[in-house]
Structures are given as structure tokens and as C-alpha cells.
Write a protein that binds this DNA or RNA. Structure first.
Length: 373
RNA sequence: GGGGAGGUUCCCGAGCGGCCAAAGGGGGCAGACUGUAAAUCUGUUGGUUACACCUUCGAAGGUUCGAAUCCUUCUCUCCCCA
């Protein structure tokens, strides 16, 4: 089994840890947040700015890229790195989440999932093998297996069936990946909904297959924060410590802290970029909505000390103005802010872990973060 | 001075006898967004002792069972010609 993650420090009384993830396009310090660029571009910001902030691992999406521009175009360009001129690492999600979020347009079978394209309605079949093939064409530094993500509060029977499909697909993905040469990395995904027996079984089974990294899926799909924390902690205890752990789909500071406390190394989330476009930005005092009238006369930056353009060059008042005026720059500046904020937040976390004061950092950060809400 | 158009709830603007506390925008307020069908979506926006009542459509009178809607006078705004 490939060993791609080296733990450099573990906090003595929690599971929080720092490490280095070695990938084909460079080393990634962990714990790390990954910006989401579904279509091969992080919405509202230049690749070079994402890179300048310090990010060297972003997400793209197999389902979306498969539908558009399509495998042939990607092949012609020699993969997504060259096509999009992003020369650092790329992790691609498999489309498993789209099985969940576009549930009206799909049918899951043992062999794979039949989708109806959200773009033109055309029908497509995605199988675990095909998804690996597409990701090989994309050239993903980390590929994800096709999985079945489920909503909270479904019956145990349904959750079990979904997990069993996920399990079978995971094995098929792994076998196919190896058969194709086992290039770069393929991560397995733990499912099991919100049932302990299924979560445990899933964590153990996925760990056993031999993936170079393990993801926890099926969280942050509408459950409560408590459920999230409970199931995250419960699941993680069954995962091997020597491999990178990735919690899919989280991205608020409080959720990130919870994940890090449980020894998670990677996470991604659309919230930072989507909310930014909708006018919400991260601060140490919680998220604020820039469009509100109360910011009209504020000459303060969004976040004191932040190094992004919005914070070093403009005020909250101006940011509110450009949002109200519907200027494109508004979403772009806010996107840059949120990504800058999270990058520096991750740096603060890593430092706190290294200096053995992670729990104190977490506590004091959250006190302030929740104080205003 | 002559002719014309008009004053509607925070703003713009529909309504032109009952189904109007009054369409639709904007603005305000509140909320949502977490492996992106999202630079998006939802709710709310006269007052109360609220499934009912009260006050409101420039002002005052009037017609009518009933008026933002019809009539009279007043007032203000805008446009055209002198």
C-alpha cells in the first residue's frame, strides 16, 4: 500500500495532528482545507490568486467534467492540470455527491448509476470503473471512488443497502485502479448513514481494502451539528492512523475545528466560495452578511489583520456598496477573503497543534466565534 | 397667460366603483447556503387587545348600499405654447 502521508506532530491529549501529504504536484501540509473548483475553476477567483494564498490542492468534480467539457476534450489537452493551467494538486470527487444532490435525476443499480444530465437531460451511466477511468484522464492527484451518499433519517434498511452498494463499488474501484496501473492515488469513502453499526462496519471495510487515503462521506448532509460531531468521532476511531483522513464537505471554522480535533487531515467545502458570492464572509466573530444596511458607514475591514485585498484595500462599507450595486468584483473580493481567511485559519490551527495548545485554541476561538450570534 | 399630464403604502410604480391594506420592482429586516444545477433562494415589510377591527391612496366636501377608483372646490408637481 502506498504511504503518502507523514504525521509530523500529534497533540498529546487529543487526536489533532499535523502532517505532510506527498502528491505528484507537490507536498501539502495538513490539516488542510481544499477550495472547491467543480468545473476546473474555483468560482470567482483566479487560479494564480488561489495559489498565491498558499493553496496547492483544490477540488474538481468528475461528474461535472465528464458532462462538460467531456473526456475527449480533456484527453486532447492531456488532463485537467494542463487544460486549466493549474499546476498544483487536484483532487476530484467522483460524482457520488451528485448521486445524492441530483437524486431526482438518477437511478442506482448494482452495476452503477444512471444519470440524467442536469445540462441537457441526456442519459449516462456511471460505473465505479468508468469513474476511475475518467479520473485517470483528468489526471487527478487524488481520485475518489464512486459512492452512494444518503440523507439523514432514512430507515436502517435503506442505509444498509446503500452502504453495501458503496462497499461493492469501493472494491471494484480499487481493483480497476490497480488493474490500470495504480497511478497517483485513489481514496475510499466511508458511508453508513447515521447508524453506528453501519458506520463501524463501513470504516473497517473501507480501511481494509488498501486505499492510500480514507474519506468520511455522508456527513454535513443536513444532520445537526451534534450528530455530525458524534458520528465523526465515532467513525474516525476505526480508521488507521497511518493514512490521510478526509472529511468531505465541511468548511465552517467550527466544523473544521471539530474535524481537526478528531484527527482529520483534509476537508473541502463550497460554502466559503458560495457564501462569498452571496455576500457572507468569515470573521473571527462569526459569519457576517455584507449586504446589510448596518455596514453602510463602516470603515472597518471585514477582518482586522486579514491580508486579502478586500481587507487591506477596502472597508465593509465599500464591500456592502459593491454587493448592493451587483458589481462582479463584490463576489470576487469576498471569495478571496473567505479563502484567505480559511488558509490563515488552518495555519493558526497547525501552529496550535505543533505548540501543544490546540484545545485551548479551539476553546477560545469558538467562544469568540459564537459570542455575537 | 393658454393648453395638457399628474399627485397611491419608505421609494418607483400598477390599480380606475365592491374580490384593495392595495399587483410588480427597489429598498429594509430576518433566514438559509457545508464532497456547487446556486454571483442563489425563502420569508417578511400600515396599526392593533390580530382568522377581526382600526387608520391609509395630495386636502376638504359630495354622489353611492359601497370610493384609491365618480363629481366639486382647493392645493402642489411636471410638460408644451406664449
Amino acid at each position: 500500500m502506498k504511504k503518502i502521508h507523514r504525521v509530523t506532530h500529534t497533540h498529546p491529549s487529543t487526536n489533532a495532528r499535523t502532517g505532510i501529504l506527498s502528491l505528484d504536484h507537490g507536498e501539502v501540509v495538513t490539516p488542510a482545507f481544499m477550495p472547491v473548483g467543480t468545473n476546473g475553476t474555483v468560482k470567482g477567483i483566479y487560479h494564480e490568486h488561489v495559489r498565491e494564498m498558499g493553496y496547492n490542492l483544490i477540488l474538481a468534480n468528475t461528474y461535472h467534467l465528464y458532462l462538460r467539457p467531456g473526456v475527449e476534450v480533456l484527453k486532447e489537452f492531456g488532463g485537467l492540470h494542463r487544460f486549466s493551467n493549474w499546476n498544483d494538486n487536484i483532487l476530484t470527487d467522483s460524482g457520488g455527491f451528485q448521486v445524492f444532490s441530483l437524486s431526482g435525476l438518477r437511478k442506482i443499480r448494482e452495476e452503477g448509476v444512471v444519470f440524467q444530465s442536469h445540462i441537457d437531460g441526456s442519459r449516462h451511466m456511471l460505473t465505479p470503473e468508468k469513474v476511475v477511468d475518467v479520473q485517470n484522464v483528468i489526471g487527478s492527484d487524488i481520485m475518489m471512488v464512486l459512492d452512494v451518499c444518503t440523507a439523514p433519517e432514512i430507515p436502517h434498511r435503506e442505509a444498509k443497502t446503500a452502504w453495501e452498494t458503496t462497499r461493492s463499488w469501493a472494491q471494484r474501484s480499487y481493483d480497476h485502479w490497480m488493474r490500470e496501473g495504480g497511478e497517483r492515488n485513489l481514496f475510499g469513502i466511508v458511508q453508513g448513514n447515521f447508524y453506528q453499526d453501519l458506520r463501524k462496519e463501513s470504516a473497517l471495510a473501507i480501511s481494509e481494502i488498501g486505499f492510500p487515503g480514507i474519506a468520511i462521506g455522508g456527513l454535513s448532509v443536513g444532520e445537526t451539528a451534534q450528530q455530525f460531531a458524534d458520528y465523526l468521532a465515532y467513525t474516525t476511531q476505526f480508521l488507521p492512523a497511518d493514512r490521510p483522513r478526509y472529511v468531505m464537505g465541511i468548511g465552517t471554522p467550527d466544523y473544521i475545528l471539530e474535524a481537526v480535533a478528531n484527527g482529520i487531515d483534509l476537508f473541502d467545502c463550497v460554502l466559503a466560495t458560495r457564501s462569498a458570492r452571496n455576500g457572507s464572509v468569515f470573521t473571527d466573530d462569526g459569519m457576517i452578511q455584507l449586504k446589510k444596511a448596518k455596514h453602510a458607514y463602516s470603515q472597518e475591514p471585514i477582518q482586522e489583520g486579514c491580508t486579502c485585498r478586500a481587507c487591506t484595500q477596502y472597508s465593509r462599507g465599500y464591500m456592502r456598496h459593491v454587493f448592493k450595486a451587483n458589481e462582479m468584483i463584490a463576489g470576487m473580493l469576498a471569495t478571496e477573503h473567505n479563502l484567505t481567511y480559511l488558509h490563515s485559519f488552518m495555519h493558526r490551527i497547525r501552529t496550535a497543534i505543533t505548540e501543544n495548545r490546540f484545545p485551548e485554541f479551539k476553546k477560545s476561538f469558538l467562544e469568540r466565534y459564537y459570542a455575537s450570534s
